[in-house]
Amino acid sequence: MGKRKSLIKIKPKKYKTGEVVKVSFMVMHPMDTGMRKDKKTGKIVPAHYINEVVFSFNGKPFTTMKTWESLSTNPVFTIYFTVPGKGELTVVYKDNQGEVNEKSKKIKPKG
């Protein structure tokens, strides 16, 4: 499948140490439920969904999520996060077919 497209957005763009920011993580994923039929072949598309998302800062996980197929296609996860200082925010996501991917973004607080 190759690497999936994913994106981490932080709002607001400029922030200081100790500020609470919004972190959105978007990923392109089919999130198949295992109930849909392929219109061309008539075969049931097997379930394929993200089942674990872990947000960590400098290697320390601060938010873990367990997810199921009831989430939409190309899901978005938005949470708040207090900026502790300089470092790297990493999101690791796994799916039920054994795919493991990660995306990271550098955190550079100003002031």
């Binding site: 938010t63 999520m65 199921w68 989430l71 978005v76 996860f77 938005t78 708040y80 502790p84």
Partner: peptide, 28 residues
């Protein structure tokens, strides 16, 4: 989602590092 075939959508474990308790996502 109370009437989906699998009712569970997501479990989110938060810590004090989050600052605010919020989750925004999209469901089917």
């Amino acid at each position: 989602a109370t009437k989906n075939s699998n009712v569970r959508c997501a479990d989110v474990m938060l810590t004090p590092a989050n600052g605010k308790a919020m989750l925004a996502t999209r469901v089917k």
